[in-house]
Amino acid sequence: MDAYDEDSHARGGPDGAKGASHPDRDPEGDAGTGPGSGPKGGVSSGSGSGPEPGAGSGQEERAGSGGPRPGSGAEREPLAAAPDAPAADAADAVDVRDAGPPDQAPLPSPRTGVAALSPRYQTVAALALAVVAVAACVHLAMVFLSVAPANTVTKQHGRAIEDWVYPEFEQNWKLFAPNPLQQNIAVQARAEVRMKDGGVRTTGWTDLSARDGAAIDGNLVPSHTQQNELRRAWDFFVATHTADNRPVALRGSLSEQYVRRIVVMRLYRDDPTSREGVIQRVQVRSSTTNVQPPKWSPERVSDKPVYRLLPWWTVSSDEAAGGVR
């Protein structure tokens, strides 16, 4: 099963899902070391030079090469030869990279590619090849180290790896791993609503996650609003709050605001009492229930939900009025 599952991990530890891993990086909220700094420049300049074949009158680009191309016939006649290009490509490309900068030795059939160039241009091509090869290898190494378990190298060079990988190459592939999530975590909410007659009413608990679940049932294409929004907002909240519900740094307060805004938006949509008045305060709790083990398993676990109750939050006027309804 390799469907994505950030939650099992996010709930297990702070270094989890895409968003939830940010809290880790909080301490180094470094303004100066953007991802473009240092060796990254090499990536951009080297790899940016892949132009659009169509731009300009690109048809003349082979004018100088002339004659039939050397190399594997497989490439030229894929219909007949049925080659397995990718694997072979990968192997070849690795060869080149392992070998480091190319020498200037004449190639077997000096008709196309670098061989068609004069030594001056060949030097430039060789340089480009070397830069691109090094950049690709360094990039792969950095990404590998960023998804690998903590080890001697990451302990020593963690900062350099983060600077390279974050923010755009961040990734987490611990899909349903090491263990899949085995609990249904439902977010429930209630509100204090000021009614038109001036009175204040407290609503009952609305199970917002249950509504998500109902929306997903029988749905071939569940929306991110149903499958991810509240679920991941809660993951984010849990990952950025202490056990006694105190926010940790910027992301803690952001996650609180986020959960509150989702809850208010949804109560206005779904809760009849809230629709008639103006929400003053909301309270949120999570209800965690074990997924019952399969029938064929001798295991038994409790089926009682465990609640985590948050304090009442005051809803600001713009939160109560604005937003997407």
Partner: peptide
């Protein structure tokens, strides 16, 4: 493409584009 007199700049750009493509495909 439009103005270069010698074919070499074109070939060089083509070579670099190929190298970058192949590296990206590997990545």
């Amino acid at each position: 493409q439009r103005w270069a007199r010698s074919p070499e700049p074109r070939i060089l750009l083509d070579v670099v584009a190929n190298v970058v493509h192949n590296a990206a495909l590997l990545v």
